Simulated assay, not measured.
Amino acid sequence: MSQTEFERIYSRAPWEQQVGYCRALRAGDMVFVTGTAPIDEVGSGVFAPGDAYAQAARCLELIERALRPFGTDRTRIVRTRMFVTDIARWAEFGRAHAEFFQEDRPTTTMVEVRRLIDPAMLIEIEADVFAPVSG
């Protein structure tokens, strides 16, 4: 892939078509994962309503799943951005983040937002990944 080409992957999220975005995009050696909400396995509901830790863990699990088609994983994530609806619960969100990354810690930002697309969502996470193209 040349530096000017993009590779996109999509999920089944209904918002992708409505809003006009992709799940993740490779641009050269970088992969960008769109804001990831705590969606359940069916894709139509919110995972673990009210549970800040479980929702953060779910977002991170979905981010790693989005990286697989690009042949990379959590160890290559260089930055996360956490958008939370209640910053007072920072320790719950942070514990899930710390457990997920362990020693492969990225840079991160956590900011409080007024609300997310579904009122039951407590967090949404974006990720930037350094994943050099082989060959």
Results as ranks from 00 to 15, higher is better:
1 M>V: 15
2 S>G: 15
5 E>Y: 14
5 E>H: 14
10 Y>D: 07
10 Y>I: 07
12 R>Y: 14
14 P>Y: 15
18 Q>V: 13
18 Q>M: 14
20 G>P: 05
21 Y>M: 13
21 Y>P: 13
21 Y>H: 14
21 Y>W: 15
22 C>V: 11
23 R>I: 00
25 L>I: 14
26 R>E: 12
28 G>Q: 15
30 M>G: 11
32 F>D: 12
32 F>V: 15
36 T>Y: 09
36 T>P: 11
36 T>M: 14
39 I>Q: 10
40 D>I: 08
41 E>D: 14
42 V>G: 13
42 V>E: 15
43 G>I: 05
43 G>E: 05
43 G>F: 06
44 S>K: 13
45 G>Y: 02
46 V>Y: 00
46 V>G: 08
48 A>S: 04
49 P>W: 04
50 G>R: 00
51 D>V: 10
52 A>Q: 00
53 Y>W: 11
53 Y>V: 02
55 Q>Y: 01
55 Q>E: 09
56 A>G: 09
57 A>W: 10
57 A>F: 05
58 R>E: 07
60 L>K: 07
61 E>S: 02
62 L>C: 03
62 L>R: 01
63 I>H: 11
66 A>C: 04
68 R>K: 12
69 P>V: 02
70 F>V: 01
70 F>I: 03
74 R>Y: 01
74 R>A: 06
74 R>N: 03
78 V>S: 06
82 M>K: 06
83 F>N: 04
83 F>M: 14
86 D>L: 09
86 D>M: 07
88 A>K: 03
89 R>N: 02
90 W>G: 10
93 F>W: 02
93 F>L: 03
94 G>L: 04
96 A>L: 05
98 A>D: 01
101 F>D: 06
104 D>C: 07
105 R>S: 01
105 R>L: 12
106 P>M: 07
107 T>D: 15
109 T>C: 03
112 E>S: 05
112 E>N: 04
113 V>Y: 08
114 R>A: 11
116 L>I: 07
117 I>D: 10
118 D>I: 07
119 P>D: 09
120 A>T: 06
124 E>H: 06
125 I>S: 00
125 I>T: 05
126 E>K: 01
126 E>M: 12
126 E>G: 11
128 D>F: 10
131 A>Y: 02
133 V>K: 06
134 S>R: 06
134 S>Y: 09
